[in-house]
Every structure is written in structure tokens, then in C-alpha cells.
């Protein structure tokens, strides 16, 4: 079987021939490096979908190399919106900085009586392995590199939902700029998450929380009508038109 891998040195795709058989993409990359081409560069760690190191794009879709079964003709490329350091290896610093930007940590601990139901409220969100697949799939970064992005917002949601969080408002206030309202709710992040997390839903929930804390969708605020909008958004009655 033949697959094609992006090589940064030449800025082209290079074909590699693999023995037939169903293997994880990561095993294929290791095979290539060990036997065909030691210069092929990628990142890998645990082999078990939990260290978040090996995400790449396969035929334009984000996958963990360790859990994707390689198929003939696959095209392997590095994550988007990350500077490519070499071949499939990217610089994650900018993406990781969104966690700091979003202050995604427990702001103020208060003791709580947590139940099994409370555990369930953030079980999925805390499965996040920071693989950056969602960040790479998010189209907002094409227009706004300052966007907080899906994984940081999911993590923000996880702390605001935690019964031990004594100051959820502080997180909510922080994620208003380049945050919850900048998402287009396209759902690409949810589609590619290898852990089955749903950042789109988390962002939707955060919007609700934002409103409760007195924030509003800034795209409404900048529209020309000064009266409350009763739904509809894009179309409606413009009081200044034609009168």
C-alpha cells in the first residue's frame, strides 16, 4: 500500500510504500522512520490515545495517528493553524497559550458536596487530551487568530460547571472577547474530537451562562437598531429605514 506524507523541506508530498495489512498510522510512521527514511519527523508518545501528542490530518481530517487505521492512498499532513516545525511536527505554543488567555483553571475553591450526577456534568469535558485536533479543524482561526478556540472554551466550561468553583463569573467575563461569541457553531470541532467531546455544545452552554451573567452577543450590540431584538437576528424591522 502507498501513502503520501507532507514533507516540509521540499513543501511537497512524498510517497511511501508500506507492507499490506491493517496497522495504525503511527505504526506506519514508525516503520517508515526506522526502515525507509529516518528524516521523516512526527511526534508520538503513548500509542493509546491519551497523551495528545500525535494528531495529524488524514485526507484533510484530524486524526490521532495512533488510533487511525491507515488505508491505501491516504494523504497525511500536519495540523492547521499551527506553525509547522518539520514535516508533521507542529509548534503548539500558540494553541496552548489559549488556556492562559481563557484562565481555564479553578479560580476560587469552595468546598462542595459533589454527587455522581455532578461528576457526569463534566466527565466528557475532562477527557480532553489537548491533542489540538479541534483547534486545527476550527475555521474561525482562518479569520481570527486571536480566537480562544474549542478546547480552551470546553475547559472554561468545565471549570464554570464545577461545583467547587467559587468564581465562575471571572471565567465567563474573560471569555467574552475572542471567545464564546466568535464561534460560528459549525461543529467541526465536535466532528473531529478523538475523545467524543462536544465543544460546540459547551460553547452554546457558555453563551447561556454569559447571558445570565449580564453579557450579550456583541454582534447584536453593534447592529443599528437600538431596541431589543426579539429573535431572528439577520433580518427584521429597521426603525430607520425609509421613514
Amino acid at each position: 500500500m502507498q501513502i503520501s506524507i507532507f514533507r516540509s523541506e521540499t513543501n511537497t508530498h512524498q510517497n511511501y510504500r508500506l507492507p499490506a495489512g491493517e496497522i495504525p498510522l503511527l505504526s506506519a510512521l514508525v516503520y517508515i522512520k526506522e526502515t525507509l527514511d529516518a528524516t521523516l519527523t512526527f511526534s508520538a508518545g503513548c500509542r493509546a490515545s491519551v497523551c495528545g501528542t500525535c494528531a495529524v490530518r488524514v485526507n484533510g481530517r484530524e486524526e490521532l495517528a495512533c488510533s487511525y487505521k491507515v488505508k491505501p492512498g491516504d494523504v497525511i499532513e500536519p495540523l492547521q493553524y499551527h506553525p509547522v516545525l518539520r514535516d508533521l511536527k507542529v509548534d503548539k505554543e500558540r494553541a496552548m497559550a489559549t488556556l492562559k488567555q481563557g484562565t481555564t483553571w479553578l479560580q476560587e475553591f469552595r468546598e462542595a458536596s459533589l454527587s455522581h450526577q455532578d461528576e457526569k456534568r463534566t466527565e466528557k469535558q475532562t477527557d480532553c487530551i489537548l491533542c489540538d485536533a479541534c483547534y486545527s479543524a476550527c475555521p474561525v482561526f482562518a479569520v481570527n487568530p486571536e480566537f480562544l478556540g474549542p478546547f480552551a472554551l470546553t475547559r472554561a466550561f468545565r471549570y464554570t460547571e464545577d461545583g467547587r468553583e467559587g468564581d465562575a463569573k471571572s471565567i465567563i467575563d474573560t471569555i467574552q472577547t475572542n471567545g464564546v461569541w466568535d464561534c460560528t457553531l459549525c461543529g467541526e470541532c465536535t466532528a473531529v474530537c478523538p475523545k467524543g467531546i462536544d465543544p460546540k455544545m459547551d460553547i452554546t452552554m457558555l453563551r447561556g451562562e454569559s447571558v445570565k451573567h449580564g453579557h450579550a452577543d456583541p454582534s447584536f450590540a453593534t447592529q443599528s437598531f437600538g431596541t431589543p431584538d426579539f429573535g431572528g437576528g439577520g433580518f427584521g424591522f429597521d426603525p430607520n429605514a425609509g421613514f
Binding site: 479553578l106 475553591f109 462542595a112 458536596s113 454527587s115 455532578d118 461528576e119
Partner: peptide
Amino acid sequence: LESIGVPFSRLNSDTQGIKTIA
């Protein structure tokens, strides 16, 4: 770990803090 927010699995009990950890 509880105070920094580790999301432990929980029991259903009428207790507080780390006594609720499964």
C-alpha cells in the same frame, strides 16, 4: 488535589469535600 479541581468520580452521599470521592 480536590482543592485545585481534580474531577474525581463521586459517590452519592450526604457528605462534603473528599468524603464524596468514590
